[in-house]
Design a protein around this nucleic acid. Structure first.
Lengths: 339, 339
DNA sequence: TTGAAAGCGTTACCAG
DNA sequence: CTGGTAACGCTTTCAA
């Protein structure tokens, strides 16, 4: 196209060999520790490597070995703290393994997700971690015919595919039970997007807890959110306008809770004095809201870590050991006993 | 090592050629649109590609072409909303360019950062975006001898290296001036980590604004934070314990402001009625704190976008057009006129 | 212990 | 318009 003042080209294994006065094979052997080499040659090679500051071309290596030493990560939303935390876990699990993460995002759109996975495979990643998303189990299964895949938020266990699911229903029950224990009887629920399995499971947990406590489910207390702050804000406004009576709000996730809390603040309704709020996720921020948010902690970091570790195990032909990660109620200050 | 039930191996260009009854060269030409091919052969090849669901091996392609179609991104902290937003900008700029981002993180540690950059180069990325960090301009310059690099938070413009810096001092002045306008005279400042250029520039901006307004700088009103919520919390406690009088707090970043706000909440001090708070960054969350946080918006998304776009331009041998991105005061509800 | 040579999956040059 | 061939940088037999 146009000529750019181009980079000083990187040194190759051949040059190292030439300078050290040995064959390329020998250099390769030293690099990979794949056979014994006499001390003098080793010295010469190491010197050459140092002063050329030679670094093997990972592309060539990957092509030759058939392994690119890369794990593909399909995330949905780089901006969401939830995914971000999972990513950190993945990063931690991969650290020191020799595998580098290749992160792409699918934006919750099945077509885009599939395309991204194809891209990862075209780059010959060795395994893939899928963080939630809208791909069907069937599609994932098909991809897993080619390489190991671990997907979160799913229960699969076929061939080279594994799923790591957290018990959302149980988490929602935990939250609702706690509110019940505190004496609340009219508990509103701001739901997540119904197309998300997680959202439906949380709603189910809320209902289950209510029923177990012998409280009739009141549909007017359930209002649709969108897993975002904006949805929480709107939902509370709606709740207030329809003049429902309630003393607590259970939000389908923390972001929703932030929005709900702001809506209450706008009307001068105090938390937790007038109304209790409880969230779901335990985002890092929830420790610093006013008041700090009582919520259900999802071990997202650990989940990411386990997912990546599992891919690594699959890659080594080991049998992965998947342990169920528990959700946990984090009691802070946004919910309190009803007087 | 151990034998795993291995993946069905991917199809190659040769197989496509064989099935379509043409030579590999022809397939390659069709794939790359690099020469005219007769319609019947094209049809045959396309059919073969479709039913093998063939995808070119990007490793081989990269090796051959010398371009891996990858842009390396060095970030510092995957969990920080600040970096996350920049990443989104990068992602947006890269979308549709054919280049994929390869994200690694350096955790604010120069050695680790350098190592990561080496890793990126070993993978033969075509260009690199460095989001802040502790690398010296000199080091970056050296790296840039090999490939185009755009770094944020720096002013460099040598060879293949470019810097994109936001005017931190100006931003801090904006915030301080605003507080001054609102009638505040005793303005505390919670500083960032002194080893960050940005932190020092913001402190300088604060002092400059004070001086311009003829207000003596009071060192007792400046307390050290750490750019995290915890630092803000501690800093406010310290301020309160030393019994300094102040009516407003300017925090070196939004996270600090969140912590500061919580410290105030804990003591029953109202914001903004008793004390005004102003932050720096405008993180997504700042729209949903109680009260919503008045802050200085850094166009981080745009910065990431511009950084990636610039790398692309450098790669094409175009002359990048860098425009200075302005900081902007976002007036929300955490600061108000003093009575 | 060492080197030569073949090949990983592509692309690009050169004939035809 | 098309096919053969060499080469990208590396690893891995196979001989020596």
């Amino acid at each position: 196209m146009s000529q750019s003042s181009h980079a000083s080209t990187a040194s190759t294994l051949h040059e190292v060999a030439r300078i050290a006065g040995v064959s390329p094979s020998t250099v390769s052997r030293i690099l990979n520790g794949t056979a014994r080499v006499s001390d003098d040659k080793r010295k010469a090679v190491e010197a050459a490597i140092a002063n050329l500051s030679y670094k093997p071309n990972l592309l060539a290596q990957g092509l030759k070995k058939g392994r690119a030493m890369t794990i593909g990560i399909l995330t949905q939303d780089l901006a969401s703290p939830f995914f971000t935390e999972a990513l950190m876990g993945v990063e931690a699990a991969l650290a020191g393994s020799g595998y580098a993460p290749l992160i792409v995002s699918g934006h919750w759109h099945a077509d885009e997700e599939a395309e991204r996975v194809e891209l990862l495979m075209a780059r010959r990643v060795d395994g893939i971690v899928i963080l939630s998303g809208s791909l069907s189990d069937k599609q994932i299964g098909r991809f897993a015919e080619r390489l190991p895949i671990v997907a979160t938020g799913r229960r699969i266990d076929t061939g080279q595919a594994r799923g790591i699911a957290l018990d959302q229903l149980e988490g929602a029950r935990l939250a609702t039970d706690y509110l019940l224990e505190l004496g609340h009887r009219q508990i509103a629920f701001i739901a997540g997007l119904p197309e998300h399995d997680d959202a439906r499971a949380r709603l189910a947990g809320y209902r289950a807890a209510l029923e177990a406590a012998g409280i009739a489910f009141n549909p007017a207390l359930v209002v649709q959110g969108n897993f975002q702050e904006s949805g929480g804000l709107l939902a509370v406004n709606e709740l207030l306008e329809t003049r429902q009576r309630f003393t607590a709000i259970f939000c389908a996730n923390d972001q929703t809770a932030y929005g709900a809390r702001l809506a209450l603040y706008r009307r001068g309704i105090r938390v937790p004095d007038d109304i209790s709020i409880i969230g779901f996720d335990d985002l890092p921020n929830s420790n610093y809201t006013t008041p700090p948010l009582t919520t259900v902690r999802q071990p997202v970091y650990e989940m990411g870590k386990q997912a990546a570790r599992t891919v690594l195990q699959l890659l080594n032909g080991e049998t992965p050991t998947l342990t169920q990660l528990p959700l946990e109620l984090i009691m802070r200050e946004s919910a309190r006993r009803i007087l």
